[in-house]
Design a protein around this nucleic acid. Structure first.
Length: 575
DNA sequence: GCCGTTTTCGGCCCGACTGTTTTCAGTCG
C-alpha cells in the first residue's frame, strides 16, 4: 500500500521521456527530470508531507503544476498527463530510448514513420538491413543497435564501488606506466563516494594528449572502444565496466576535475551561479568574457564563484551550495576519527577469527575498543548463541581484557528482532552486556506498518542500544524492508538509542539521506564494520565515505568517542 | 515547467564525439 517517492519520480521520468519523443520544449522536459531528482533526494515521503499540509511548491524544482500532479498521483495512483501521453506513444517505445545512440529524435522517427515500437521490432528491422536505409541512420548505426540490444540483455548494469576498485587499480597502474602521464584521478560518482558506480571516469594530466590516448586504447582488458577522440574516450572493459577517459592539460586540471566529478546536478547549479556573476565555467577553466581567471585547481574554481571548497561527497545538489554560501558546510568525519568498532563476529558464530584474533586485528587497524557481537540463537544457520553460550563468552571476554594491551573488548550481541518485535534473548542475560546490537534477519516482507512497529517495539526494550543495518538491504540482491524510517529515526531520538551505518560494501545501510536526517534529529550513528574476518576492518572506510555523503561530522558518530564517554553514552540508553 | 538581490517574462550549463553529412544534427556526459 501507499505510493512512495520513488514511484512518483519514476512517473516524472517517464513523462520526461515521452515529452522528449514528442519534441516538447526541452526545458519543460528538464523540469520533469529536475523534479524527479528532487523527489529522489527527499528524506521524507511526499504523502506524509502532503498529509501534514506542507506546501510542496516550497520544494526546489516543484512548482504549482507539478505539485498538483504529485497530489493527483498520491490520491488516484496515476496522472492524466501520463495517460494522455501513453495514448500517443506506447510504453514499450521508452525501452528503445534507453539504447545508446538512440535519442528522442531518432526514436520518434522510428515510431511515427516506421511503426517500430518495441525492441523486438527494432531488432528485426536491423537484422533485415532495413534500418540502414533510413535517413539519418546508416550501416554503422544499424550494427551498433544490434550490439547494444544484445549488451542490454547481458550486461551487468552497475558495479559496487568496492568491486569497481578491483578493475580500476590495475588500469590506473597501466596508465601511470606511460612516461608522459603526470596525474591520474578517478573522478565521477566514484570520487563522490557513491555506493555503486555506473562507469569509471578517469582524468589524466599530460603534456602529450595524443600519445596518452593511444596508450589507453591499447589496454588489454578493453573489449570495446565506444568512442575515442583527441581528449576523450569511452571504452568497455571485459568485465562490462564502462570507462570514460579525459585527457587534459595541466592548467585545466582543477576545472576538468570539477566537471568530471559531478554530480551533473551540482555542476549545473555551479555554472548557473557563475553565470549570474558574469562568469562562465567549462572543463577548461573559469572565464570572464574571453579572459581565463581560474581553473588550475578545484579550489580556484570554487573561489572564483565565491565559494569555499565543497567536498566531492556533498556535490549532489542537496543544499551544499547554499550551505557553502552561508559558510555552514559540515566538517566531515574522517576515517581516522573512529576510535572503535561496535559490531564484530567471531568463530563462535559465523566469523572466521577468534575473539583474540579480532581484537588484535582491530588494534592493528588503530582502534582502541571493539565490541564482540555474535549472532543470537534464532539465526540457527550461524550457530547463534543461546544464553548459556553467551554467558560463557562474557566470562571469556572479561578474562581476555585482563591480558590484552592497547585494545579493550566490549561485551555485546547481535540479537535478532523477532517478528513480534521482541528480542531473541531474555532480558537478564542482555542486561549483563555493555551493549545490545539488534537486527532483523527474517521476515523481510512484512507490510510497512508491521515492519515499522516491529522495530519500534524492539527499541522499547531497555537493553536495546543500536539498530544494526536498519533497512536490511543488500545492494543488487535484496530490496530494503518497507519501513517508515522517519518514525524509526524519531523514535531513536526520543529513546536515546543509536542507529548503525553498516560498512559492508553491499550493505552501506543507513543510506546517506537517512544519515543526514538522523543527524538533524540528534541521533548518533555508529559506523561499524560487521567484520567476519580480520581483514574486514578495512571496510570501515566505505562506511565513512557513506557517512560523509550523509553530511556526518565527527560529533555525530557514536564510535568517535573515547572509551570512557562511549561507555557513558551506552549506559544512558539502558536507563 | 520552474524561477527571480536585474526579472512574473524570458531565460534555462556547456562542450566533445559520431555518423552521416558536405556543414551539422543528434547524442552523451
Amino acid at each position: 500500500m501507499g505510493i512512495h517517492n520513488e514511484d512518483i519520480a519514476v512517473i516524472f521520468e517517464e513523462i520526461a521521456d515521452l515529452l522528449e519523443i514528442e519534441d516538447a520544449n526541452p526545458f519543460r522536459v528538464r523540469a520533469y527530470r529536475n523534479a524527479a531528482r528532487t523527489i529522489r533526494g527527499l528524506s521524507r515521503e511526499l504523502g506524509d508531507l502532503l498529509a501534514e499540509g506542507k506546501d510542496l511548491t516550497t520544494l526546489p524544482s516543484i512548482g504549482k503544476d507539478l505539485a498538483a500532479k504529485i497530489k493527483e498521483i498520491l490520491e488516484s495512483g496515476h496522472v492524466s498527463a501520463l495517460d494522455k501521453l501513453h495514448r500517443e506513444i506506447p510504453a514499450s517505445v521508452e525501452d528503445i530510448l534507453k539504447l545508446p545512440g538512440l535519442g528522442p529524435k531518432r526514436v520518434k522517427q522510428l515510431y511515427h514513420e516506421h511503426d517500430i515500437k518495441t525492441l523486438a521490432q527494432l531488432e528485426s528491422a536491423a537484422r533485415s538491413g532495413k534500418l540502414q536505409a533510413l535517413p539519418g541512420f546508416g550501416k554503422r548505426m544499424e550494427q551498433n543497435i544490434l550490439e547494444n540490444i544484445h549488451a542490454l540483455q547481458t550486461k551487468e548494469k552497475r558495479f559496487l564501488r568496492h568491486k569497481a576498485t578491483f578493475y580500476a587499480e590495475p588500469l590506473l597502474h597501466y596508465l601511470k606506466k606511460h612516461k608522459s602521464v603526470r596525474e591520474t584521478v578517478i573522478a565521477g560518482s566514484y570520487r563522490r563516494g557513491r555506493e555503486s558506480v555506473g562507469d569509471l571516469d578517469i582524468l589524466i594530466t599530460t603534456g602529450d594528449q595524443e600519445l596518452v590516448m593511444e596508450h589507453f586504447i591499447k589496454y588489454e582488458e578493453i573489449s570495446q572502444v565506444v568512442s575515442s577522440g583527441q581528449t576523450r574516450a569511452t571504452v568497455i572493459l571485459a568485465c562490462g565496466l564502462q570507462v570514460d577517459l579525459r585527457v587534459v592539460a595541466e592548467k585545466s586540471f582543477g576545472s576538468a576535475l570539477y566537471y568530471f566529478t559531478g554530480s551533473k546536478a551540482h555542476n549545473i547549479r555551479i555554472r548557473r551561479l557563475a553565470q549570474q556573476q558574469g562568469l562562465k565555467i567549462n572543463e577548461y577553466g573559469v572565464y570572464r568574457g574571453s579572459k581565463r581567471i581560474a581553473g588550475d585547481s578545484e579550489q580556484s574554481v570554487s573561489k572564483a564563484v565565491g565559494l569555499p571548497f565543497i567536498p566531492p561527497e556533498l556535490r549532489e545538489d542537496r543544499g551544499e551550495i547554499r550551505a557553502a554560501l552561508n559558510h555552514q558546510l559540515p566538517q566531515l568525519i574522517e576515517a581516522g576519527n573512529l576510535k572503535g568498532d561496535l559490531h564484530v563476529h567471531t568463530i563462535a558464530t559465523d566469523g572466521q577469527g577468534t575473539i583474540k584474533d579480532m581484537a588484535l586485528a582491530a588494534r592493528k587497524y588503530g582502534l582502541d575498543y571493539l565490541a564482540i557481537t555474535d549472532h543470537s540463537r534464532h539465526l540457527a544457520v550461524t550457530h547463534g548463541l543461546d544464553p548459556g553460550r553467551l554467558s560463557r563468552q562474557i566470562d571469556e571476554i572479561d578474562e581476555l581484557n585482563t591480558i590484552l594491551k592497547g585494545v579493550t573488548l566490549l561485551k555485546g550481541i547481535e540479537v535478532d528482532i523477532l517478528e513480534n518485535g521482541t528480542l531473541d534473548l531474555p532480558d537478564d542475560i542482555l542486561s549483563r552486556l555493555d551493549l545490545v546490537v539488534a537486527a532483523v534477519h527474517s521476515q523481510f516482507h512484512l507490510t510497512r506498518r508491521k515492519q515499522t512497529e516491529r522495530i519500534l517495539r524492539a527499541m522499547d526494550n531497555r537493553n536495546f542500544s543500536i539498530l544494526a543495518h536498519p533497512s536490511g538491504r543488500l545492494l543488487f540482491e535484496r530490496e530494503p524492508c518497507n519501513l517508515d524510517m522517519e518514525k524509526i529515526i524519531r523514535k531513536a531520538s526520543e529513546r536515546g538509542c543509536f542507529l548503525e551505518l553498516n560498512s559492508q560494501p553491499q550493505r552501506l545501510d543507513l543510506i546517506d539521506i537517512h544519515c543526514q536526517q538522523a543527524k538533524n534529529e540528534g541521533v548518533l550513528i555508529s559506523i561499524n564494520s560487521d567484520a567476519h574476518d580480520e581483514n574486514d576492518f578495512n571496510n570501515l572506510e566505505f562506511g565513512v565515505d557513506q557517512a560523509r555523503r550523509g553530511w556526518l561530522e565527527k560529533k555525530n558518530v557514536l564510535n568517535t568517542h573515547p572509551l570512557k564517554s562511549l561507555k557513558r553514552l551506552l549506559r544512558q540508553t539502558m536507563s
